[in-house]
């Protein structure tokens, strides 16, 4: 079974205004892996993510999702396979109620109404938001919005989850709950983030991007031990790996 594989080869992308966002990106992510994409602001993380579901397409480089290369013909199927969770849930939750929003994707797949119903229920149940079903999105807390955003994607039953800053703007408790939730998912996960502590919890592998290029790609623990590498890409060791300033432990 190879359809959970994400492969990117020599990807380059320049925005129409001339900004070169991606210079040369290559990596391969296999079934069930959980990979963090880290890097400074403007390193090209978001641009990379936008390529993974075919919103941006460049002539340069190849992207392969599962068995298919990403082309205009396969983009519809690939968007179903790759579920994308956006940084701002307000962008993702655009329908009048939570139910309508989670049902939006399944309805576009032309599923029968009963199937849509059960998918919505399952997705909301998985993220623990079933009780929010008939609420409008603007009446949700930040944590609830995030859970529902994830449910909207789960309802499409994707094989691969791509997330942009899933822990941003969450209070510590909501953040912890989200991490626990993501741990239970069996999907292939690609997470772009600055929250390195979360990376330690969730991702066994980390890709560091710097100025549109892959600086480093390897096991998370190794990368976070490499002080020089982190400094060069505007990162810091996760807090829990730093010495405690109060008790002085190294």
């Amino acid at each position: 079974m190879s359809h959970h594989i994400v492969e990117v080869k020599n990807l380059k992308y320049t925005y129409p205004d001339g900004t070169c966002a991606l210079k040369d990106i290559s990596f391969r992510i296999t079934h069930g892996e959980s990979v963090a994409v880290v890097g400074e602001n403007g390193a090209g993380k978001s641009t990379l993510l936008l390529h993974l579901n075919g919103y941006l397409m460049s002539g340069n480089g190849i992207i392969r999702i599962g068995d298919y290369p990403l082309t205009k013909e396969t983009v519809k199927e690939i968007r179903r396979t790759v579920g994308m969770v956006f940084q701002d849930p307000d962008d993702q939750l655009f329908m009048p109620t939570v139910y309508d929003d989670v049902a939006f994707g399944p309805l576009n797949l032309s599923l029968p109404p009963e199937e849509v119903d059960s998918r919505v229920e399952n997705a909301l149940f998985t993220v623990g938001a079933l009780h929010l079903k008939s609420r409008p999105p603007y009446r949700l807390s930040g944590g609830e919005k995030r859970s529902v955003s994830i449910a909207t994607v789960l309802a499409m039953s994707p094989d691969i989850l791509v997330m942009d800053e899933p822990t941003s703007n969450l209070d510590p408790r909501a953040r912890r709950k989200l991490i626990e939730l993501l741990k239970t998912f069996k999907h292939t996960k690609i997470i772009a983030t600055h929250d390195l502590d979360m990376v330690m919890d969730l991702c066994e592998r980390t890709i560091v991007i710097h100025k549109g290029q892959v600086m480093s790609d390897g096991p998370t623990a190794e990368i976070f031990m490499n002080q020089e590498l982190l400094a060069e890409s505007h990162l810091e060791k996760p807090l829990r790996m730093q010495g405690c300033p109060v008790c002085g432990n190294k």
Partner: peptide
Amino acid sequence: DRAQRIYLAMLCRGFDGEIRVNR
């Protein structure tokens, strides 16, 4: 910009120009 992001979020979930509501 927000409209563009919303549009993108819609595309990601199979939007094809038609909004369907199951109600």
